[in-house]
């Protein structure tokens, strides 16, 4: 599903966003702790992490809504400390909560946003946006009466009217139903094809796998980043999948084993993972002898297992080192 990131990596052009040591302190707590990131031009860059991990704060600093307490960076080549206005004019930022005006109509909202960015040929642009959204007939409907999915698509369309080269989306699909989420991602891919760089934060794994690049952040620290396909390899996690009878019993036994680092249930399967590949293989050899009815299968770890693993490690090391680095 993901495009081949290798092409973009070799691309010599300047990244859309590059930050170094980005830090934000609230009440003495580093909510964003020396984050380095580089978002290549034209990529869909997934920004993954649990709630409260500092994703929103990082994005806000990247689009110059917040002043960093430390670190430096450039967004679209503009300094995030000095060129706030230039950044704002060239970036489309969609906030987490629906934040257009519920008591204005769809058209009025689009028109207002177009005026904020001083879009030329406003009437035509707004008409065009309504048409692309498929909302031509509903321009006079109040935005507040739209469903959650439509609100998000409207918000996305509203911040695309000035044709920004970079789109920052802060959990755009939180609380949106699966169908609307798929539609939303179709649109993101469309925009990406047109050359727009997209930085999107999410905590849905099915969305993470659609990204070309991923950065994982927890407790304000970036734990890992890179092309989506290489992340599991970087972590070096080995995973066995097992299905069959008495999995509850097996799960308990595996958890007790020090050579097993993570046991997670996925539907009718247990995913058993560890960075100690040899140790894990030994455990599997022992256990598979006990019950022939169970099926064991060694597979490369997937993103979801990797993230669960990263999260658990980060929690253990909170305040000390922040877990493994990429």
């Amino acid at each position: 599903m993901s495009t081949t990131p290798a092409d973009s990596v070799s691309d010599r052009s300047e990244p859309a966003i590059v930050v170094k040591g980005l830090t934000k302190i609230y009440n003495g707590k580093k909510v964003v702790n020396e984050v380095d990131m580089s978002v290549p031009k034209g990529a869909i860059y997934g920004f993954i992490g649990p709630n409260g991990s500092g994703k929103t704060t990082t994005i806000r600093m990247m689009c110059a809504l917040l002043t960093p307490d430390g670190g430096e960076g450039h967004t679209l080549g503009y300094d995030i400390h000095k060129d706030a206005r230039a950044i704002k004019e060239n970036v489309g930022y969609m906030t987490q909560k629906f934040s257009l005006y519920g008591d204005l109509t769809i058209r009025e909202n689009l028109d207002f946003m177009a005026r904020m960015y001083r879009v030329k040929n406003r009437k035509k642009v707004v008409d065009e946006t309504l048409r692309t959204l498929g909302l031509e007939g509903r321009g006079k409907q109040l935005a507040g009466t739209l469903s959650g999915g439509w609100k998000q698509r409207l918000a996305l369309a509203a911040c695309m009217q000035h044709k920004p080269a970079l789109l920052l989306l802060d959990e755009p699909t939180a609380g949106v139903d699966p169908k609307a989420r798929r539609d939303f991602w179709d649109e993101i891919r469309q925009l990406s094809k047109q050359g727009v760089t997209v930085l999107v934060s999410t905590h849905y794994m099915d969305e993470a796998v659609q990204c070309d690049y991923i950065a994982y952040i927890a407790y304000g620290k970036k734990l890992i980043d890179g092309p989506a396909t290489e992340i599991p390899h970087q972590v070096g996690l080995t995973t066995w999948r097992v299905s069959g009878p008495d999995l509850v019993q097996l799960e308990e036994e595996l958890r007790a084993d020090p050579r097993v680092e993570q046991v997670a249930r996925f539907g009718a399967q247990l995913h058993v993972s560890s960075t100690d590949s040899a140790g894990l293989d030994a455990v599997v050899a022992e256990k598979s002898g006990e019950n022939d009815a169970r099926k064991w299968e060694k597979k490369e770890a997937e993103l979801e297992e990797v993230f669960i693993y990263l999260m658990a490690t980060a929690a253990d090391n909170f305040g000390v080192n922040g877990g493994p680095s990429a």
Partner: peptide, 13 residues
């Protein structure tokens, strides 16, 4: 309160 201020501040206004 409604979160529209964030959108507003994010624009060049």
């Amino acid at each position: 309160e409604r979160g529209t201020m964030e959108t507003l501040i994010a624009t060049p206004v």
